[in-house]
Amino acid sequence: MTVTISKRKRPRTLHHEPRTVTWARTKSGLTKRALAQAVGISEQLLNEIESGWRSATPANLMKIADVLNCPVVFLERKQGWHPRPRC
């Protein structure tokens, strides 16, 4: 009997900027647990959203933005935006 173990992969596209979600949460003074409870999601899901292992659904992203009192646009991934290399 052969058991196949699949390796977990990051999502190809994210609806949010993980570092921005973390930054906004810490600036608001909330822990991951407090934000997750306020949004109505598990702390594990919030951890995966902040680390980039799961993409936040548009509905969850709106809830996160509402709790953090910031525009959802601030947390969304900027499509086609790439920082210029510094020469």
Rank of each mutant, 00 (worst) to 15 (best):
E17W: 10
R19L: 06
S42K: 11
L46T: 00
V67K: 15
R86N: 08
Q37Y: 11
S6R: 13
T26L: 07
G52P: 00
W81L: 11
L46F: 02
L68T: 13
T31E: 05
R25S: 00
H16C: 05
S42W: 09
N60F: 03
A59Y: 12
I49E: 00
A36S: 10
N47C: 07
K63Q: 13
T57V: 10
R25E: 01
C70P: 01
T31R: 09
T26W: 03
I64K: 00
L75Q: 01
E48W: 00
T31I: 10
S28N: 15
H16A: 02
K32L: 11
T20Q: 14
S42L: 06
V73S: 11
L45P: 01
Q37R: 15
D66Y: 09
R84Q: 09
N60K: 12
R33I: 06
E17D: 14
A24P: 02
W81H: 11
S51L: 04
Q44H: 06
I64N: 00
R77G: 05
M1P: 04
H82N: 07
T4F: 08
A36T: 09
K7T: 08
A59K: 12
S55V: 03
A59C: 04
F74Q: 06
K27Y: 09
T13V: 11
Q79W: 08
P18V: 09
S55Q: 08
R84T: 07
H82T: 13
T4D: 05
V72F: 05
V39T: 08
D66C: 09
T2S: 07
A36L: 09
M1G: 13
G80W: 14
T22L: 11
E76T: 14
V72N: 02
P71N: 12
T57F: 08
V73D: 10
W23G: 01
E76K: 15
E76M: 13
P18A: 05
K9N: 02
T31D: 07
G52T: 05
V3M: 07
T4P: 04
G52Q: 02
I5A: 03
M62Y: 07
L61T: 01
A38E: 15
V73H: 11
L30V: 07
H82Y: 08
G52R: 02
N69D: 15
E76Y: 06
T22N: 04
A36K: 04
A24T: 10
V67L: 04
L46M: 11
T2M: 03
E76Q: 15
A65D: 00
Q79R: 14
G40W: 08
V73P: 00
H82V: 11
L35R: 04
P71D: 13
A38V: 10
T13C: 02
C70Y: 03
S6L: 10
T4N: 05
R86I: 12
L46N: 00
L61I: 10
G40A: 12
T26R: 08
H16P: 01
T31P: 03
K78A: 11
V21L: 14
R12S: 03
H15N: 15
N47W: 02
W23V: 06
R10T: 01
K7I: 07
W81Y: 13
K63V: 03
E17L: 14
I64Y: 00
N60R: 12
L14M: 06
A34M: 12
R86E: 07
R54V: 00
